[in-house]
Computed example of a mutant assay.
Amino acid sequence: MVGIVVVSHSERAAAGIREIAREVGGDARIEAVGGTGDGRIGTTPGPIREAIEAVADDGVVVLVDLGSAVMNAELAIEEAAADAVVADAPVLEGALNAAVAATAPSATVESVLEAAEDARDVSKV
């Protein structure tokens, strides 16, 4: 199964997004990474790499909130022993789409990435 990693500057935000994505994604393998090791707002590559490796069976799609989360996710992917990509998608909507797509028997990193990135065009009103 393709794994999903949600990265946010806030540990609570990442956990909340994972919680919502698990509701719609059922059996999807989703890890949440947020904040710094000392409880501050921010991201660091080490925990992101560990999360990627924890769900890396058939590859991983990483969803990020903003700024340095992108840079740290890319660093983590370089260090990880896994096929992983960062989605250019809104983190919540992308995670929901990715979670549903990841549960398909024929899911690939490419199909889950495409589903996540399809969320860029979702209108909220």
Rank of each mutant, 00 (worst) to 15 (best):
E74R: 13
E78K: 14
E117T: 05
V2F: 03
L63H: 14
A95Q: 02
A69Y: 02
A119R: 00
D121P: 01
V2W: 01
A115C: 12
D38A: 13
G67P: 07
A54W: 13
A13K: 02
A54G: 02
D83H: 10
V91Y: 05
E117C: 01
G34M: 04
A80N: 05
R120L: 12
T36Y: 08
A32S: 13
E31G: 11
G35T: 08
S111R: 08
A73N: 02
A98I: 08
A81S: 15
E23N: 11
I52Q: 07
A101W: 00
T108S: 15
M71P: 03
E117H: 06
I20V: 15
A81Q: 13
D118A: 14
A89T: 09
A98F: 10
D65F: 08
D27A: 15
A80F: 01
G59D: 04
I48P: 14
V86S: 07
G46D: 15
A115W: 09
P45N: 10
P47Q: 11
L75C: 09
N72Q: 07
V109R: 15
V85C: 02
L66Y: 10
R22G: 07
G39T: 07
A115T: 10
T108G: 06
T36E: 05
A102F: 03
T108L: 07
A84S: 09
A32I: 04
D83R: 11
A107K: 09
G34E: 00
E110T: 12
E50H: 12
E114Y: 00
V62I: 01
L113A: 06
D83V: 04
V55D: 05
L63Y: 13
D58E: 15
A32W: 02
D118T: 13
G59Q: 01
N72D: 14
P45H: 03
R40N: 12
A116F: 06
S106G: 14
A107C: 11
G37M: 10
E110C: 00
M1V: 14
E31P: 10
R12A: 11
